[in-house]
């Protein structure tokens, strides 16, 4: 189902009007293929028993995360997940899982790795495209 979701960022314009530097769009290639590959396994290990892929791709994912800063996704993975042991994943595992989720939602890999620093992730916005 990934790839058929048409996105609209209008509702999220507040993100763009921040005084911070212009955000980097996740569609510009903000993670590496290696991160996504590792993230696939980490997702299967830690996440998939509660969150199958159908719930994290296409419309369900877009509904939650389109137009949102990657730092927010990082925050959930840091502070709330897994629900029985929040904070379990290492920072590397967290960004790997994020990379995998971006790939799963048709945002292509690039040359630079997704950083682990939440301050840097704050400047990356998930912009799902058709």
């Amino acid at each position: 189902m990934a790839g058929v979701w048409v996105t609209c960022l209008v509702a999220r314009t507040a993100v763009w009007q921040s005084p911070e530097p212009a955000p980097t769009l996740a569609s510009s290639g903000v993670y590496t293929a290696e991160q996504a590959a590792r993230g696939k396994d980490a997702y299967a290990l830690y996440c998939s028993s509660c969150h199958n892929l159908g719930s994290q791709s296409g419309e369900p994912f877009a509904k939650k995360w389109n137009g949102v800063r990657v730092s927010e996704l990082m925050f959930v993975l840091t502070d709330a997940m897994p629900k029985d042991d929040p904070g379990l994943l290492t920072p590397t595992e967290r960004v790997d899982v994020i990379a995998y989720l971006l790939k799963l939602n048709d945002l292509a890999a690039g040359e630079k790795p997704l950083p682990e620093d939440p301050a840097l992730l704050k400047n990356i916005v998930i912009d799902l495209v058709k």
Partner: peptide
């Protein structure tokens, strides 16, 4: 109306997010 996304918008539930109700940790 779709709920807000991200921190603070997902409170509660099964675990919720930081700064939420039911946060069982203080400073980690």
């Amino acid at each position: 109306v779709a709920p807000e996304t991200g921190r603070g918008g997902r409170g509660g539930g099964r675990g919720g997010g930081g700064g939420r109700l039911g946060n069982s940790r203080i400073g980690g």
